[in-house]
């Protein structure tokens, strides 16, 4: 069996958040690109968990190879990280020249890669922490007419059947489908493993295979973006916080309860036991 894990390189969302909150997020002259070179680039955390899900299947005895694939201009560092975690094969798909790639183009490229090279199981993150869209896996599944099962806490394969424990707002749901299938992985899967030193060293010497769009059987029109990013900005937060002050924790607590009763958020009752 062959498992393909789709991994995206993103700007560290915590660093972006820290700059945004402090009012120091730099946006380039094009009014949309985040230009701070001090923001680290790393593998989308959910994609690390998707790799972890694949490795757990392999560790658990599934006879599968694991291939990590990424669409992007320079994804070498992210793919080396994937290799250090223990995947067998790393592939970089370069974006089409002169096109501002959107989620539809990324999905078309990933789907073509899977169609051409084959996969029984396609694992992805539930969403990328930069655009938060969570649409690429569904677009890939539709392009390949594969079932799509989202937000996995656990993924199990038995023969041609895949069983997914999904984290839903109403609690866990267990769903089954036949391979080939697309499954998106959530943080509830648990901590991904750390690479050991030996694997880290080995990964440094690995050069990902580079695949050009022209090497792939992308259907006509598949490389035409449907969306163009026009602008990006930091939304204003209207802060109007009253900081309560008092001498002791007890007095602060009483003051807060007073405020909440005064503004009718809470009601003073008859002194329940």
């Amino acid at each position: 069996m062959r498992t393909v894990v789709c991994v995206k390189e993103v700007l560290d969302p915590d660093a972006v958040g820290a700059y945004a909150v402090s009012g120091h997020l730099e946006i380039g002259d094009d009014a949309k690109t985040l230009t701070q070179t001090t923001i680290p680039r790393l593998m989308n955390a959910y994609d690390e968990q998707a790799i972890e899900a694949a490795l757990r299947l392999r560790d658990g005895g599934a006879d599968t190879t694991v291939c990590a694939v990424s669409v992007g201009a320079d994804t070498t560092a992210t793919l080396r990280h994937a290799f250090s975690l223990g995947v067998d094969e790393v592939v970089a798909i370069s974006p089409p020249a002169g096109v501002e790639v959107d989620c539809h183009v990324v999905a078309a490229l990933l789907a073509a890669f899977v169609r051409d090279r084959g996969a029984d199981l396609v694992l992805t993150g539930r969403q990328a922490s930069d655009d938060d869209q969570g649409v690429v896996p569904a677009l890939v599944g539709e392009a390949l007419a594969m079932p799509v099962v989202t937000i996995a806490r656990a993924v199990d394969v038995d023969g041609t059947k895949v069983t997914v424990t999904r984290v839903t707002p109403d609690g866990d749901e267990v769903a089954e489908t036949e391979l080939p299938a697309v499954v998106t992985v959530s943080s509830e899967l648990g901590e991904p493993r750390y690479p050991n030193v030996k694997m880290k060293m080995a990964a440094r010497k690995v050069t990902p295979e580079v695949v050009a769009p022209s090497d792939l059987s992308v259907p006509d029109g598949g490389l035409q973006p449907l969306l163009r990013l026009e602008r990006q900005w930091v939304p204003a937060v209207a802060g109007e916080c009253e900081i309560l002050e008092a001498d002791s924790a007890a007095a602060l607590a009483d003051l807060l309860i007073d405020r909440l009763v005064d503004d009718k958020t809470l009601q003073a009752g008859g002194g329940r036991p």
Binding site: D130, D131, Q232, W233, V234
Partner: peptide, 23 residues
């Protein structure tokens, strides 16, 4: 044109939809 939250809400993005394409 569609505005959306990105980076968990730390930024907003504005996407233009290709003319003639539904969204």
């Amino acid at each position: 044109e569609v505005s959306a939250a990105a980076f968990g809400g730390d930024t907003r993005v504005l996407y233009a939809v290709t003319p003639g394409v539904a969204c």
